[in-house]
Structure formats: C-alpha cells, structure tokens
Amino acid sequence: MSTKPTPVTADAPKKRLTTSAMIASIAAEGQATRPAPFGHGLVKLAESRPDIVGLTADLGKYTDLHIFAKAYPDRFYQMGMAEQLLMSTAAGLAREGFMPFATTYAVFAARRAYDFIAMAIAEENLPVKIVCALPGLTTGYGPSHQATDDIAIFRAMPNMTIIDPCDAIDIEGAVPAIAEYPGPVYLRLLRGQVPVVLDEYDYQFELGKAKRLRDGADVLFISSGILTMRVLEAAKRLDKDGISCAVLHSPTIKPLDVETILAEADRMDRLLIVAENHSEIGGLGEAVALALLKNGRAPRLRHVALPDAFLDAGALPTLHDRYGISVERICERTKGWLNED
C-alpha cells in the first residue's frame, strides 16, 4: 500500500521514507479486518480442549501464537530457531496424546523440516497441525521467505491434508475443524490484521468441501487462499462490463472436493479459470486439471498463478501486479482469455 511522500521545505526536517516490502498484510485500504484469528481461535478452542498445546520455532509473535502463549504459558513450547526439532517434538507430544499446533514460516516447514515431517509425522499419521505464515507471495522479503512451492511439496506427502484459507472467517472455522481431524494437517496462515471477506456470502468452512460463493454464466473461477478474495473483487468489477462470473472457493487442496468441482464444471459452458497464490507447478491448478481429465472433462481452462521462478523482493502491491495476481491483472487476463474465443 503506497503512500505519498511528505513534501520537504526549508523549514521542515527531511522525513525518512519507508518501504512496504516487509509488510505481510494483504488487506486493501479500508478493508474490514480481524486481529490474529488463528491465535484467538486457538485460545478459544483450548478452553475446552486441555490436550491442545502450541509450539513454535522462535516465531510466536509472527504466527500469532503469542496470544496462545500468553493465555496458556504452561502449554506453550518455544523451540528456538530449530524447525526440525520443532516437528520432532510435536510428533512426540502427539504420541503422548496431545494435540500439537506447530507454527513457523511456510518456507521453513516445507524446505528445512520436510524429512522430519515426512518420517516423524506423516508416515505415522499423527494429529500434528502445522500452521505456517507467509504462504505464496504474501511477503516482500524475496525467495528466502516466499513459499511459492509449499503446496506442491506437501501435496506429494502421503497422509497430509492441506488447507489454504481465504480470510479471517475461514481461519476461525478451520481451527476447530482441523483439531477434530485425526491426521496431520498443513494450514497456510494469514496473520496479523486479516481481511474479512466471506461474511458477505453465507459461508462456513467445512474440511474437504468447496463452496460456491456466487454464480455466473460466462466464467467459473475455482480458487483458494487470498486469490478467492481477489477473484471475488474481480467478479464484481467484471459485472460492470457485462461479464458474469461464478466463484467456487476450494480451501481444502488435499483432499480435493472433486465431486463439487465436476458438478460446477458440468453446469454450463463457461471459461474455467483456476486462481491460486502458488507456483503454476504442483498446486490447485494442476490438481483441478487432473481431476477434470481423469473424469473425462475437457473445459476451456486457464490458470492464474505465480510463475515457475524465484520471485523478486519488493512491495507487495507491485509484486502482485507484476506476477499477475492483483485484481486489475485478473480482470485484464480474464477479458483477454474470453476474447480468444
């Protein structure tokens, strides 16, 4: 979110300009938000679930787990900057009957702790909930912190359920749902002041279910995460140009709700656009395309996703526009794809 620089006069001191490259918020200016829905949701759930414990690798403040730590200090474990130890400890606690919520950044879980998650958690099908901030392109730090390949990595891991929530409402619904689920879960976390979007659509999170948020005759968007937020806004703008868009939100990436996707794809002849905050390799787009082809469907299919590349560092609005996931670029690309026909 850009700001105008303060004019400098002879009498005014020079103000140091700052950059938004380090800001992970994806809320638009004036958009309604809720603070730390994961942290507050976990505290609420823990009131009736004494088995719930929280662990982090030196990132409690940056994954909103500090709220849980303050409420339940005797059920919180600070593991330091040691993600492999974090996952191994979570596995051990799960074996002893606890319900561990382990938080870190998505890049650290997917890349640094992969083998420990695979061997200690997934192979044993333990109920560890891995909740990770900075998914996809939600930080301007650059490739060291942008988890553009995390879904691809965890989709290939047996027993792993994957959730990519859209907003605060999705996160609040997902926390108790994944706690009830008996196996391991990877949840992509939006942290801090998280936008509220789905309150307009009579929506409730259900594990493993995709939900149609709006109907339309020309385009069907199938989306997850913050791209659901973006395509909903794009659909409103495209309406003004006479383009009618449906939006099917699929917060559960694995297992995919194939039945609902097929039903929506069969309803009418529409351009189908899969939109995700992830690399074009190995994410929701490939999962949807494979499901359609395996079931004999071949719709007109296009993909809004991040490129198969290491992305630049910088301010998020600039990066989102550069890589095609801003509302403006989604509208532009949708019109172009429709004109191809």
Rank of each mutant, 00 (worst) to 15 (best):
A246M: 12
L232Q: 03
A24D: 06
N125K: 14
C166G: 01
Y77H: 11
A32H: 07
K14R: 14
K70V: 12
S20V: 08
F68P: 02
P299V: 13
H320G: 00
G242S: 06
T252Q: 02
L271I: 09
G225W: 02
L293F: 13
I23G: 01
H278S: 09
G183Y: 04
L319C: 03
G192L: 12
N295F: 07
P73L: 15
A289E: 10
V258H: 01
I169T: 12
D241P: 00
R191L: 14
L256N: 05
I117N: 04
F116H: 10
R95T: 04
S279H: 06
A27N: 05
A246L: 13
I261F: 02
M229E: 07
P13T: 08
T148V: 14
D11Q: 11
G80P: 09
D269Y: 05
A152N: 10
I23E: 08
L248Q: 05
G283Q: 04
D241H: 08
M119H: 10
I281T: 08
E259C: 02
S224R: 02
K44W: 08
K294T: 13
D11G: 00
P13C: 08
L306S: 00
R267E: 15
G97K: 11
S326P: 01
S20M: 12
P307A: 08
R155F: 03
F116P: 00
L187Q: 09
N277A: 00
A174C: 11
E233A: 13
H320C: 06
A291Y: 02
I117D: 01
L256K: 06
C331I: 15
